[in-house]
Write a protein that binds this DNA or RNA. Structure first.
Lengths: 115, 115
DNA sequence: CTCATGTGCAACCTCCTGGTTGCATATTAG
DNA sequence: CTAATATGCAACCAGGAGGTTGCACATGAG
């Protein structure tokens, strides 16, 4: 495998933090939820219903794109965005690893007390 | 159930965003990982191995505490922090709902094409 | 062709964040 | 008691985040 990141690095805080940071904004979570409908949408469309400017929404989309949570494709004069569920899975898995670590630790502590 | 939040609100971006925001920092993810060992640790202890000041670490811990990801208990002159795995699960579930929404949408679109 | 629509870019502004330092206070160690 | 340890609190700072406005430019509609 000629991958640029080791398996250990995959769970590094360094790689996971930007992902969570991108999700750590109400507006962006709303955008992501809309894009969860699996229909690529233009910036103008995504701006509708928001009390924000088109440019503000654009900035949020670029942040999501930078984190790999969203992909954009130019379609004529429009930019269509769609969700990249792989990154969502990455975030989920990071939390899974943490939970597993916690559960293991608890169990090990319990064993220690019992014997 | 006399809960203060409706079931729908539980998945609102408004509630989830602060959670992800708290996780969106490398230092905080490192702290959370350390606390995943299920052993309550003092601020001084958590500062060890970091290139940060004790106060910087303290601030991060307060942010995590504010998001409910961590709980603190004063033990003598020390403040001991431990993980609150429930919030981690909340974050994970939010991502699960999003993934499910995406998968459902994809399947529905596929059906639409096939018939 | 002409005009309206959808974006991109850049400058600017305000507020929050992550960090630091300095000092006060509460406990525990000897 | 006295000194060392573990925190808390407040002031201060630089830089980044989230938003806005203004203007240029490309493309689709009539």
């Amino acid at each position: 495998m000629a991958r640029s990141h080791s398996a250990a690095e995959k769970w590094s805080p360094k790689r996971a933090a930007p992902l969570f940071a991108a999700l750590g904004d109400e507006t962006r979570l709303r955008l992501v939820t809309k894009l969860g409908r699996a229909e690529p949408m233009s910036i103008a469309h995504l701006t509708h219903g928001t009390d924000l400017t088109r440019q503000a929404v654009t900035k949020h989309l670029r942040v999501l794109e930078g984190a790999g949570i969203v992909k954009s494709v130019k379609k004529g004069r429009e930019s269509h965005f769609e969700l990249a569920p792989q990154k969502i899975d990455d975030a989920k898995k990071w939390l899974d690893v943490l939970s597993a670590q916690w559960d293991d630790a608890l169990e090990r502590l319990r064993d220690l007390v019992e014997r």
